[in-house]
């Protein structure tokens, strides 16, 4: 059984109006996504890209391959960690360590339903050299009820 959507003129108008409405706020939201996640401490540079992982629905685990890049004017040994304030340093396990380096990058397999903060530490004095964060957000912020949906 069948449906027909006629009146092409009205439809063209609806297309234009909808596009205008939809494009306007989207630019604002894209700008907000581009907020800096570089948190340089001293002269270090450390970034996570993408800085925002987006899942469809609130509470869902978000998946992304995040590129963590850093550089520092001082060449020495560094390690990359996930920030976990409740754990002692000795309990942390490094994502990756580099010897005698002043810049590098690693791909991190991000799987989380909340933001993850990363820390770059100097291996020599265990000092936090730089931090970066990957936020998690959702297209549908509220939790919808389970629905019956059909395409056609």
């Amino acid at each position: 059984m069948y449906s027909s959507f006629s009146n092409g003129f009205a439809k063209k108008g609806l297309v234009i109006i909808t596009l205008l409405i939809m494009l306007q706020p989207s630019m604002a939201s894209e700008l907000s996504v581009q907020k800096s996640t570089k948190l340089p401490l001293n002269d270090s540079r450390f970034s996570a890209q993408p800085s925002n992982c987006i899942a469809l629905r609130h509470g869902r685990t978000c998946y992304a391959n995040v590129t963590l890049s850093w550089n520092n004017p001082i060449k020495q040994d560094y390690c990359l960690y996930i920030k976990q304030p409740k754990l002692k340093f000795t309990q942390l396990s490094a994502i990756k360590c580099w010897k005698n380096s002043n810049g590098n990058q690693v791909i991190f397999n991000f799987e989380s339903d909340k933001k993850i903060e990363f820390q770059l530490l100097s291996s020599t004095d265990k000092r936090v050299v730089a931090e970066a964060v990957v936020d998690v957000s959702w297209v549908h912020k509220a939790t919808p009820r389970k629905r019956r949906w059909r395409i056609f």
Binding site: S26, S29, E30, I54, A55, L56, W138, V139, R150, I151
Partner: peptide, 18 residues
């Protein structure tokens, strides 16, 4: 009667678009 089978997929593009 009408019988239907369907597959539907959604993926986020940005905070507002899917």
């Amino acid at each position: 009667y009408q019988a239907q089978l369907e597959i539907f997929a959604q993926h986020p593009i940005s905070q507002n678009w899917s």
